[in-house]
Design a protein around this nucleic acid. Structure first.
Ligand SMILES: [Zn+2]
Length: 275
DNA sequence: TGTCGTGTTTACTT
DNA sequence: AAAGTAAACACGAC
């Protein structure tokens, strides 16, 4: 499911429903996740109340009244789902949170579902910043240290955009879209990106991510919010998934699909040339 | 029915 | 620093 915009759409939906709920219990399947929370930590969260739901890059963060935190990475296919009463556990359900309002006896269940299990979760006793670079929804305009690393690198620009330690939140769909919007070749090495292009790149990142979030993000296959919302960005994408189609900008060339750093990458060979 | 290629991610190894 | 590999499952093409 998740690049930054999908996690942000999930966060916006779930935050008002989750804040104020108290943990009754947490159940865990016996299947391994990428990284995990111990049973001691799960039990310790019993009775604690969720105070805030935030996001840094692709990491969803629940903060409790005790300042403890849970961090979730959704991997490729991870998602949350409200389990409505009298429905059975769904396939690939790995974590089940039983929650309730403070003065209520009615229980609600939110489950973490992840078929491929590239996702994971972590527990922190105190507020902790995930170990990633600046968030791509605007932080990247204020703290420009990542630009120094970008221009010092020989790696392809699109690969650098995917590096979460530079800017956090860009995934494979939006990395291609950002390069398309800028009219720059995705395989251009970082140290060859002109200064004029860097100035346009910095604000383009949050422009693309916010725009995608406003459309509900991208549903390719698995992504859906806990209330079932689907992302409509793919219908409006400029290049992602459109190999062989005419370029929506020049209408002349057809969009090409190449591999950069083992990931499918889409671009228009006429609009996105190496300088 | 079976095999192959592809995929929204990233942590670890070379 | 950069490149490659592995993790697990679903689905469509042939
Ligand atoms: Zn074009």
């Amino acid at each position: 499911m998740p690049e930054g915009p999908e996690v942000e759409v999930l966060r916006r939906e779930i935050e008002p429903e989750l804040v104020g709920l108290q943990v009754v219990k947490i159940d865990r399947s016996n299947k391994a996740l990428r990284f995990d929370v111990s049973y001691d930590e799960m039990n310790q969260l019993s009775q604690k109340t969720i105070k805030a739901v935030t996001r840094v890059g692709k990491v969803l963060i629940w903060r409790f009244n005790t300042a403890e935190e849970l961090h979730f990475m959704l991997g490729m296919t991870g998602r949350f789902d409200w389990r409505y009463s009298d429905t059975a556990a769904e396939k690939h359900e790995h974590i089940c949170f039983t929650l309730k309002k403070a003065q209520s006896v009615v229980h609600e269940q939110l489950v973490f579902v992840d078929p491929r299990r590239f996702g994971g979760w972590r527990y922190f006793a105190r507020p902790t910043r995930p170990s990633v670079g600046v968030d791509g929804f605007g932080e990247q305009r204020c703290d420009l240290g990542w630009i120094d690393r970008l221009v010092a690198s020989s790696r392809a620009l699109k690969e650098l955009l995917l590096d979460q330690t530079l800017v956090a939140g860009i995934g494979n769909i939006y990395a291609s879209e950002i390069c398309f919007q800028l009219g720059i070749h995705p395989a251009l090495p970082g140290h060859q990106v002109p200064n004029s292009m860097l100035e346009r790149l910095i604000p383009m990142i949050d422009a693309v991510l916010f725009d995608a979030a406003s459309r509900g993000g991208s549903t390719l296959k698995d992504y859906r919010t806990p209330r079932g919302r689907i992302g409509r960005f793919p219908e409006l994408a400029g290049v992602y998934g459109r190999a062989g189609s005419p370029c929506p900008r020049c209408q002349q060339s057809e969009i090409k699909r190449i591999f950069i750093g083992q990931r499918a990458s889409f671009f228009c060979p006429q609009c996105q040339v190496m300088p």
